[in-house]
Design a protein around this nucleic acid. Structure first.
Lengths: 343, 343
DNA sequence: TTGTACGCGTTATCAA
DNA sequence: TTGATAACGCGTACAA
């Protein structure tokens, strides 16, 4: 049972000897109502801690002042920072946020999106799940009139607004950096090969290899999973044969870092001497790792913040169409894990 | 503008040549309606992806099937894991969650709580802000009938349900561990002295000192802040005087770990040889830090999960009163940062 | 077995 | 300047 504030407009009206309509207008500062009565009404409302019933006004106005935030997970530095940015912007625009977690499952994402199709929210901010290759559920609700802004992980087939980072360029720069550090057997570790961000990173990586590296690795794109145990195995396989081991790795996916560090410790492989590592990550603890972790740091907060303002602009009618592409560049932060000279 | 699904009960009724009332009953499996028509109605509803309007049914039923989750921050392993647990449980109970972030500010917490007093949610899960010493805003809404379950950071003055961990005992055990490792100048670093969890930890810490330690530090409780720069200063002050430096620290607050590691690196203090560190933390990267970090690991997921089920039990009428206290014990995970023998 | 009518709390239109 | 009334979509008591 919801706890409905027992004091409603009706109650106020009775106490004041006014009609509900007048009270409503007074509370909404309608010029129809005399200033004196407006003051009187507001005073009583304040005394009784009156708050308008959310559902009634939403039903009436067909607007909820709420936006949905759909993320694949929340225990990830990128997404928790992005949510901070979203929350800040939403606050500034007087919007509420509802956060839903897909756990990287398309099935769950579909359920969540369908549930949102009942007027509960005015718009959607989404970073799609790893499994989402095809977005009929999103297209449908979007065509129905629901504004959508993608942040970070977008669906290429949809041309709604997107706020992303420069994944292609960043991956290229990461390769460049490793090549500069004399790596010539460079691998790319990824949790996905289908996500737009993964594709772009892989393309940038490949371009880097072709342009900059004279040598090459046979299976230089390694696909990982969501399971730590499985990843430990995959990485062990990759690294244990010392004759054919990479000397540099670009890691796409924060959670993979732990596995790499742990496996290297176990196999006695020294980072950065024997293996140089650079990771797409927003980890606050990068400086405290041993060795400190080189990262491609995404502007997570900024991405969330901008995406939200973009959506709110559209919702508040400040935009004629919601199709802007915003690119917030990532930053290469070189630390000990990828350099010859130890910090 | 919210995107209201244009297909409503009314539309279905018209298409089927039935009345809205009958359609409503059919969709809710009322025995009043014949099985055949029920089937027919449901089929059409499914075809058209009908979903009941959230606000209309909430207004009608005075229930929202939504719970508010109020946390001080989200970029903290404890809270993001706890939210995972909350989300899992909410899903199991078919409740929605709305997440609000107080940023450790009482003022914001009050605003959030007041906003919730309009029927938007059926109940509240909260971990209070660092500034919340007095809880009139919570008491008021609770006395009004809004069920509240505290998780982790509770308000001692309120006797509603709480799901917490064994902070007193854990802090005591941490001291015991450090004493076992031959520390005799042990400090406690805390972001708060007023939070229930901080108080309990400090009490457990003090008990440990008195019972187990022959020596003592003069100012053994060190209060830190939310600002990293400020904390770096405080910790530098604490550690730079080598003649009067602690040899063991119990850290209460995940974010303080970075500061300690960074300051020690800067001052050339070796962990664990010169300073042993153990931290209340859920950091996944504890094993990857240099040295690997000893932690008192809170059962974050479990705390969130249980708190949610407790609240839902109450909301679903399975509980006569909402006053249970659940204690999920933390686990001491000893690693290199607090032991003489390096792992 | 189905239909009718009312009310949840709010706001907007029209009348007074 | 204020009041009455209808409507948002749904659920339910009551009538048919």
């Amino acid at each position: 049972m919801a706890v409905r504030n027992t004091i409603t407009i009706k109650v106020l009206a009775k106490k004041l000897g006014l009609s509900v309509g007048s009270v409503s207008k007074a509370l909404n500062d309608s010029p129809e109502i005399s200033i004196e009565t407006r003051e009187k009404v507001k005073k009583l409302a304040k005394q009784h801690h009156y708050t308008p019933n959310h559902f009634a006004s939403n039903l009436r106005n067909n607007t909820s002042k709420t936006i949905a935030v759909v993320v694949p997970e929340i225990s990830d530095s990128f997404f928790s920072l992005a949510i901070n940015g979203i929350e800040k912007a939403a606050q500034e625009r007087a919007y509420h946020i509802i956060i839903s977690i897909t756990n990287e499952l398309l099935s769950k994402e579909k359920i969540i999106i369908n549930e949102l199709h009942n007027g509960m929210v005015d718009g959607i901010l989404i970073s799609i799940s790893r499994e989402t290759l095809e977005g009929s559920h999103l297209k449908e609700i979007n065509e129905f009139g629901m504004p959508i802004v993608f942040f970070d992980r977008d669906l290429e087939a949809m041309d709604t607004a997107k706020v992303v980072t420069n994944d292609f360029e960043s991956a290229y720069n990461a390769v460049k950096h490793l090549v500069d550090q004399a790596c010539n057997k460079i691998c790319f570790l990824s949790v996905s090969e289908s996500l737009s961000i993964s594709k772009k990173r892989i393309e940038g990586f490949k371009k880097g290899l072709i342009e900059l590296s004279k040598y090459n690795m046979p299976n230089h794109i390694v696909k990982c999973s969501t399971e730590t145990a499985e990843n430990d195995l995959i990485i062990t396989n990759l690294l244990q044969d010392s004759s054919n081991r990479p000397d540099g790795i670009v890691v796409s996916g924060e959670h993979l870092t732990i596995s790499i560090y742990n496996v290297c410790k176990q196999l006695g492989i020294k980072i950065p001497e024997q293996l140089k590592v650079i990771c797409f990550s927003n980890l606050a603890y990068a400086t405290c790792l041993s060795p400190s972790l080189s990262t491609i740091t995404q502007p997570a907060f900024e991405i969330g913040y901008k995406a939200t303002h973009l959506l709110c602009d559209s919702l508040d009618g400040k935009l004629t169409e919601l199709k802007e592409r915003v690119i917030c560049p990532s930053k290469l932060e070189i630390r000990a894990s990828s350099t010859c000279i130890k910090h």
